Simulated scan of single mutants.
Amino acid sequence: MKKTLAICAALAMAALGALGCSEAEDEAPGKITWPDGRKAAIALTYDDALDTHLDVALPALDARALKGTFFVTVGSYPFTARFEEWRALTGAGHELANHTLFHPCTGGPGRDWVMADRDLATYTAGRFVDELALTNRILEALDGESVRTYAYTCGDTEAGGESIIEALAPYAIAARTVRQETPVDGNGLPDTYLIGTYAEGDPTGAQLIAYAERILAEGTVGTYLFHDIEGEHLSVTAQAHGELLDWLVDHEDEIWVTTFREIMEHVRAHEAAE
């Protein structure tokens, strides 16, 4: 009798496995279930609050009903000069995210453009956090949101020689780097404070799409870092940008394209359930 039950149990498990619904598969570490049966998630992010974000990127996104995340430097002239336009984009479902008050970066060899009073090497962690918190308050006055995400300025993760990664937790639920790869934790889940991105200079549409295809194949989360669109600062052409957006629309049943904040809230909820 015991032998018969064992055989039946083995057959049942084999049948479940063939259907793709085995317990082992359902509880696979690092496996994130994306909304509406989609297989991956991508956030389109735009750094530095540049004029071309409002003039070129935003209309391109809105024409395709796609949502973007704008990592804004609130002390920059393009932000302060077009304050109401930045406020308005949040009403269309786009995200205003924290990219600091003055965009400080670590100076040194090869970074002669970093101003002395904006050098993260001379900051203290306390000064960095104070400016981060002030930026959040300014953004909350615009969009009423209390949950924020962050993008490392110039990819730098230290202030005054101290790591700022752990200091981010009270002010941002997640952070995007400038590196392409995302580290994973012991369960295979993405490190929400070191989310990778595609940030290659002057890419073609095909190169942009190839990254999205990789994210889809891996079933994970990916982001794009754009600066100028048809501009002068680390620019991408409007054509290449548009080709990517069109491809994402064509694959909307497979890839969840939404704001960085919404994706990270989903990932964090998955982490909490583990």
Rank of each mutant, 00 (worst) to 15 (best):
K2V: 14
K2C: 05
T4G: 05
T4M: 10
L5M: 06
A6T: 06
I7A: 15
I7D: 01
A9P: 01
A9Y: 12
A10T: 03
L16P: 01
G20I: 03
E23G: 02
D26V: 09
G30H: 09
I32A: 03
T33N: 11
T33L: 05
T33I: 15
G37E: 07
A41E: 02
A43N: 09
D48N: 07
D55H: 09
D55M: 12
A57Y: 03
A57W: 13
L58S: 00
L61G: 03
A63G: 05
R64Q: 08
V74K: 05
S76H: 14
P78L: 03
F79I: 14
R82I: 00
E85I: 00
R87T: 02
A88Q: 14
A97S: 13
F102R: 13
C105S: 10
P109I: 03
G110F: 00
W113V: 03
Y123D: 02
T124W: 11
A125S: 08
I138N: 08
L139W: 11
S146F: 05
V147H: 08
A151E: 00
A175G: 14
T177W: 08
T177R: 14
T182K: 07
G186V: 10
N187E: 13
L189Y: 15
P190S: 05
T192N: 06
T192Q: 12
L194W: 11
T197R: 13
Y198T: 07
E200A: 12
Q207C: 02
I209F: 13
A210K: 12
Y211C: 05
E213C: 09
I215M: 09
L216M: 09
A217R: 13
E218M: 06
E218W: 07
T220F: 08
V221P: 01
V221A: 14
H227Q: 07
G231H: 10
E232M: 08
E232P: 00
V236T: 15
E243I: 06
D246E: 08
E254L: 12
E265I: 06
A269I: 09
